[in-house]
């Protein structure tokens, strides 16, 4: 049995407009973030893996299921879309209950499961109210509840943190982590990069319908040869440290921090730097902390896609 979500040479065109092109992916369990500017193909990729759109070319498989088989696919997959429309006249509870009834569950089980998931997304008080009167954040939660209602193994969430207040964001992130910790796939699209950075096990960077990078953030960062790695060091003798570092030909730039208690170093070979670091520590420089300064999604995103796109 496969535990991967696989895209094999997948392209999707909407008429003459490109959705995604030549995508090859093999997504393992854990939290995977799709990152890219508007129109980069994040939602298309999610719609492809849930069968809401069909690939123009290539093949998509979710674990062992074909995307053309919704009857079985959606027993293991839950999708919280960005579409902000609901069947008319339903309360939050009826929305989840109807979804579970559509799955073929009996009334009693559907009711129990609906209340359980409504509780999970903290919407019990509003459950009997019509969705039309919900705030944006509440609508986001009820969509999330729909995706979670049947305890899926694969959770696909399109911009799930949009419209949520900070407390709710923290709750949701905890929920995603708990789901991933059970061995599930959690696929998230987001443009709030620092949140992606905090929660993702791996990222897929998209630009103009192409996958420009994929994998763990540190691995992706390591593969970017054009940009030197930035490392922040807090130490006792930063000037002495800087002088030693300039002896290495891979060091490009060093800037001393204003408080004279640290420095920012740019190097083409991070591995060589870490080896040298041990030597320096033995030479009487008191090293307080060493941390990569650009080993995050935002930096990787800026390097690969460009700062202008990142701002969008």
């Amino acid at each position: 049995m496969s535990d991967r979500i696989v895209f094999e040479d997948v392209s999707k065109f909407y008429g003459e407009i490109l959705g995604v092109n030549r995508v090859n992916l093999s997504i393992p369990p854990g939290i995977t973030s799709l990152v890219g500017p508007n129109g980069s193909g994040k939602t298309t990729l999610m719609n492809l893996m849930t069968g809401l759109v069909k690939p123009t070319r290539g093949r998509v498989q979710v674990l062992d299921y074909r995307i053309g088989d919704p009857e079985n696919l959606f027993r293991i997959l839950g999708y919280s879309t960005q579409f902000d429309a609901f069947p008319k006249g339903l309360t939050g509870f009826q929305f989840i209950y109807s979804y579970l009834k559509l799955s073929g569950r009996d009334s009693q089980t559907a009711e129990q499961m609906a209340w359980r998931v409504i509780e999970r997304v903290n919407l019990v008080d509003a459950a009997k109210r019509n969705i039309a009167g919900y705030s944006k954040g509440m609508r986001q939660r009820i969509r999330l509840a729909q995706a979670l209602a049947h305890d899926p193994k694969v959770l696909v969430l399109d911009e799930p943190l949009n419209g949520l207040d900070p407390l709710a964001r923290a709750e949701m992130i905890a929920l995603f982590r708990a789901t991933a910790a059970q061995g599930c796939h959690v696929i998230i699209s987001s443009h709030i990069l620092h949140e992606v950075d905090v929660i993702s096990d791996q990222v897929i960077l998209l630009s103009n319908g192409y996958v420009v990078a994929e994998g763990q953030i540190s691995t992706v960062r390591g593969e970017i040869q054009d940009h030197p790695t930035q490392i922040l060091i807090r130490c006792s003798k930063p000037r002495e440290f800087a002088a030693k570092m300039f002896e290495d030909q891979h060091t490009i730039e060093v800037s001393i921090h204003k408080d004279e208690r640290g420095l920012l170093l740019k190097t083409r070979d991070a591995d060589r730097f870490y080896l040298a670091l041990n030597q320096l520590a033995m030479n009487g420089i008191d090293i307080e902390s060493v941390a990569p300064a650009d080993d995050d999604v935002l930096s990787v995103y800026e390097y690969l896609i460009g700062s202008e796109e990142a701002v969008r």
């Binding site: 919704p70 696919l73 579409f83 008319k88 979804y99 559509l102 799955s103």
Partner: peptide, 12 residues
């Protein structure tokens, strides 16, 4: 109404 996806997301 942009609500057809509700049905298409169910295991049916």
């Amino acid at each position: 109404d942009r609500s057809l996806h509700f049905y298409f997301l169910a295991p049916i």
